[in-house]
Deep mutational scan, measured.
Amino acid sequence: DVEPGKFYKGVVTRIEKYGASINLNEQVRGLLRPRDMISLRLENLNVGDEIIVQAIDVRPEKREIDFKYIP
């Protein structure tokens, strides 16, 4: 289970102007929005990149997770 405040290694699977889709595994994925990137710009991400993200909002009833990137 993903817990708010914990850090996870994820893989960038899609990049859109509203954010990047991050997969932690086949069943768990979430969104990294541009506003939640401290020192990383969306255009510097590539599909397949592995990054460390922090879960900031977990809504299991909607199967949604928001991530934050902290270098």
Rank of each mutant, 00 (worst) to 15 (best):
R33K: 08
R63M: 14
V53M: 05
E50L: 12
S39W: 13
Y18S: 10
D1Y: 14
G48F: 04
D36W: 09
D57A: 15
N44W: 13
G10Q: 01
F7C: 12
Y18A: 11
N44R: 06
E50P: 08
D1A: 13
T13Q: 05
K68N: 04
E43Q: 10
L31A: 02
L45P: 00
V58I: 10
G19N: 03
F67Y: 02
T13W: 06
V28E: 04
D66Q: 10
V28D: 07
E16Q: 12
V58W: 09
Q54G: 02
E61A: 11
V47Q: 02
A20N: 02
Y8W: 02
R59M: 04
P4Q: 11
V12R: 00
R63E: 11
V58A: 05
I15R: 01
K62Q: 12
G10M: 05
V28L: 13
N44L: 10
I52R: 06
A55D: 00
Q54L: 15
E50G: 07
V2T: 03
R35I: 09
G30Y: 04
P34A: 09
L32Y: 02
I65R: 02
G5K: 04
I22C: 05
V28F: 10
D66Y: 15
L42K: 03
D49L: 05
L32R: 01
D36S: 04
V28A: 05
S21T: 15
S21L: 15
R33C: 07
P71N: 06
D57P: 03
D36M: 08
Y8N: 00
I70T: 11
D49Q: 12
T13F: 06
E16L: 12
N23R: 14
V28N: 06
R41F: 08
E64L: 10
R29V: 15
G19V: 05
N25Y: 07
V47P: 05
R63K: 14
G19R: 03
V2K: 03
Y18G: 09
I56S: 05
K62F: 11
G30M: 05
I22K: 02
F7N: 05
R41H: 09
D49T: 05
T13M: 09
A55Q: 03
P71G: 13
P60D: 11
E16D: 15
Y18M: 11
P71V: 08
R41Y: 09
G30K: 01
E61K: 09
A20C: 07
E26Q: 11
L32E: 02
I15G: 00
R63P: 09
I56L: 12
R14K: 13
I22G: 02
A20M: 05
D36R: 03
L31T: 11
Q27F: 15
D49C: 08
P71I: 08
L31N: 08
V12I: 12
N25M: 06
P71C: 15
K17E: 12
L24D: 01
I51Q: 00
G48H: 02
K17G: 08
E50H: 15
A55L: 07
L24H: 01
P4H: 06
A20I: 12
P34T: 08
G30N: 02
I56E: 01
L24A: 01
G5S: 04
A55W: 04
V11S: 03
Q27G: 14
E61S: 11
I65D: 03
Y8K: 00
D36P: 07
I38H: 13
K68P: 03
D66M: 13
G10S: 01
N23Q: 15
N23W: 15
P60T: 10
I22S: 03
D1E: 12
N44H: 13
P34C: 08
K6D: 02
D66F: 15
P34V: 10
K6V: 08
N46Y: 09
R41D: 08
D66G: 09
G19M: 05
F67M: 03
Y69G: 02
K68L: 09
L42Y: 06
N25Q: 06
Q27D: 13
M37S: 04
L32S: 01
N23Y: 14
D66W: 14
L32C: 07
L42E: 01
R63H: 13
P71R: 08
G5T: 02
M37N: 08
N46D: 07
I70Y: 11
K9A: 08
D66V: 12
P60S: 09
A20W: 07
I65S: 03
K62T: 13
V2H: 04
Y69F: 11
R14Y: 07
D49V: 06
I51S: 00
Q54I: 12
I70M: 11
F7P: 04
I22N: 00
K62D: 10
M37H: 04
S21H: 15
G19H: 07
D1T: 14
D57F: 14
V11Y: 12
R29A: 14
K68S: 11
K17H: 13
I70H: 08
F7R: 05
Q54N: 01
L45F: 04
K17F: 11
N44K: 06
I52V: 11
D66T: 13
Q27N: 15
Y8S: 00
G10C: 10
R59G: 05
T13Y: 08
L45C: 04
E61P: 07
R14G: 10
F7Y: 10
K17S: 14
G10K: 00
I52M: 10
Q27T: 14
E61T: 10
S39K: 12
E50S: 13
I56N: 03
I52N: 04
P71F: 08
G30R: 01
E3H: 13
E3A: 10
M37P: 02
K62V: 13
E16I: 04
V58G: 04
A20Q: 01
L42A: 02
P60A: 11
N46S: 15
V11A: 02
N46R: 15
G10F: 08
G5V: 04
Y8H: 00
K68A: 15
K6P: 01
S21D: 09
I15N: 03
R63T: 09
E64D: 06
V53H: 01
V58H: 05
I56C: 08
I15W: 02
L31P: 03
V28K: 03
P4Y: 09
I15V: 09
D57G: 15
F7L: 07
G19P: 01
E43W: 11
K9G: 03
E43I: 07
V11T: 11
I56R: 05
V53P: 00
N23P: 01
R35V: 11
D57W: 11
V53Y: 00
E16W: 14
G5Q: 04
L32D: 02
L45V: 06
K68R: 15
V2D: 01
R33G: 03
E16K: 10
P71Y: 07
Y69L: 06
D36A: 05
E64R: 09
R59H: 08
I15K: 02
A20Y: 09
R14W: 10
L42M: 08
V2R: 03
D57L: 12
V58K: 04
Q27Y: 14
R14Q: 12
V2G: 04
L31F: 12
T13D: 06
L24M: 04
E61Q: 09
L24W: 04
A20V: 13
P4R: 12
K17M: 11
Y18F: 13
F67K: 03
S39E: 14
M37V: 05
V47L: 11
Y69P: 05
E43D: 11
V11W: 12
G30C: 11
M37Q: 04
V58R: 04
K17A: 14
N25E: 05
K62C: 11
D1L: 14
I38M: 12
V28I: 14
K9W: 13
N25K: 06
G19D: 06
I70E: 10
E16H: 15
R41S: 12
E26T: 11
V47H: 01
D36L: 05
L40F: 06
I22M: 01
G19K: 03
